Computed example of a mutant assay.
Amino acid sequence: MNEIHPRTIAETVDGMAPKADRMAANMAAKAEGAIDAAKGAADDALDSLKSQVGDLRRNVPDNLARAASQVDELIKRGMDKARDTQAAVRERASQAGEQTRGYIRDEPMKSVLIAAAAGATLAAVISWLGRSRGSKP
């Protein structure tokens, strides 16, 4: 059997120590490089975020002004539409009034009878509603 002499083991270990030191130094350098790269990436991301926040701060007033202008325009259009509708309703009511006056002038007897029938019907409905409400507990 081959015997290994303690001095051979010691010499082998002593010979490996510089290699192990170089490997440890190499790993430490790589770890520092990775840390530096991660720090650089984080710094870049932070710079990008700061830039985007700055852009947002600069653009918000313009966007708000644009939105306010659009709201003002919508309000103006709505008011114009309401005025147009009001004018159209007034015109139709005026025409209906003119037609009613013309019918009364042309057919006075029919007009009186129609008004009397409408009044009697309205009085009957009011009377009926009064009795039906009065009889409920």
Rank of each mutant, 00 (worst) to 15 (best):
A41I: 06
A41M: 11
R58C: 01
T121R: 06
V13I: 06
D47M: 08
S48T: 13
R58H: 15
A10H: 04
R58N: 12
S132P: 01
A96P: 00
G33L: 15
M79P: 00
R90A: 11
G119P: 01
Q52N: 15
G119F: 06
A42I: 15
A17G: 04
T85M: 13
R90W: 04
G40H: 13
A115V: 11
Q70L: 09
M109I: 14
N2F: 11
D72R: 01
T85I: 13
A20M: 12
A68Q: 11
L74H: 02
R57W: 02
S69P: 03
D106G: 01
R101W: 04
R83K: 05
A34D: 14
R57F: 07
I114V: 11
R83C: 01
Q99W: 02
R66S: 09
R22V: 06
K19F: 08
V89R: 05
A65L: 10
D21W: 04
V71E: 13
R133K: 09
R7T: 01
V13L: 04
H5P: 01
M27A: 14
E3S: 09
D55H: 07
D55I: 07
I104A: 09
A115N: 10
N63K: 02
L129K: 08
L113M: 14
A25C: 01
V112T: 15
G102C: 01
N2P: 06
I114A: 12
V112M: 03
N26I: 03
R66P: 00
A25I: 06
V53G: 03
D47K: 14
A88P: 12
T100D: 03
G78T: 10
A67F: 09
L56F: 08
